[in-house]
């Protein structure tokens, strides 16, 4: 049974696209079929982070408009054969994104893939609301910083009211993914701690991605951090998240940059 995930945040620049690419690759690592969809019409970037920017021929809008069939627009990753990208249009107006069109594309993808990951644009406009519209579960990417937490709270409100599931009286499973986390700064009280963020947002934790230069290094070369340096701290954190998404119970730790040493934060498991 296919799972539709939305990676969302409200605020820009917190790591939605990075997380979509890293999780897509981590989930597809064992041959699970994964498609990542870029919903940022006019400002696409998932293609660039995945290193597929020169292979885009057709996009999501072309499929919705009937210009191309879905298989023509899907780009298979060169490193992982079960990972696919459905890019956003760089030129079209985001008004071309229609609710019925998105519904049809998601329905068709559900028959072909195990995981459908929708990379939401920032904001709460059409692209963002359509990215979350048909989601079964949501990953709310949050930086331990006031404006990001506030925007996440707003997005949680939208997930509870504006999604197809919410309108049917069901619930979208919501999870917090904290990114750019500095354990030491949080310990010194200079940065909101994990528990602070979870308490304020009253939403369970899916994982914590430590701040790392590996993330920028991976995007520089167009490779998800989980493929570019699987042993790095952020990659190990993303692999843990992927295992939790697949239903495994993985202790909640923040991997540190020193290889093999884990900073045990708390023994609580992800909900």
């Amino acid at each position: 049974m296919a799972q539709v995930l939305v990676v969302t945040s409200g605020k820009g620049g917190v790591g939605k696209t990075t997380s979509t690419a890293a999780l897509g690759a981590a989930l597809a690592h064992d041959g699970t079929k994964v498609v990542v969809i870029d919903f940022d019409v006019g400002l696409r970037n998932l293609d660039l982070v995945l290193g597929a920017e020169r292979r885009v021929v057709f996009d999501l809008i072309n499929v919705i408009n009937g210009v191309a069939k879905l298989p023509q627009a899907l780009i298979r990753d060169k490193r992982l054969e079960s990972l696919y990208l459905l890019p956003a249009s760089q030129t079209r107006d985001k008004e071309a994104l229609t609710e019925d069109g998105v519904a049809k594309v998601i329905e068709e993808l559900r028959t072909k893939f195990d995981w459908i990951i929708c990379d939401s644009p920032a904001g709460i406009e059409r692209g963002a609301t359509l990215a979350m519209r048909y989601a079964d579960a949501a990953i709310i990417v949050t930086n331990p910083e006031v404006s990001s937490v506030r925007d996440s709270d707003r997005i949680i409100g939208l997930l509870d009211s504006k999604t197809a599931k919410a309108e049917r009286g069901e619930r979208v499973d919501k999870h917090i993914l904290i990114t750019r986390y500095h354990s030491s700064r949080a310990a010194r009280g200079e940065m909101l701690a994990i528990d602070d963020v979870l308490e304020i947002l009253s939403t369970p934790l899916l994982g914590v991605i430590p701040e790392s230069q590996e993330v920028l290094r991976a995007s520089n070369v167009g490779s998800p951090v989980t493929l570019n340096n699987p042993q790095s701290a952020p990659a190990r954190a993303y692999f843990d998240v992927a295992r939790r998404l697949k239903g495994e119970r993985v202790p909640m730790v923040v991997p540190s940059e020193t290889k093999g040493i884990f900073n045990r934060l708390f023994s609580r498991n992800a909900a």
């Binding site: 910083e145 949080a186 200079e190 909101l192 602070d196």
Partner: peptide, 10 residues
Amino acid sequence: GSAPIARERL
């Protein structure tokens, strides 16, 4: 640190 202030304001 300033994190408790951030937390209260939020």
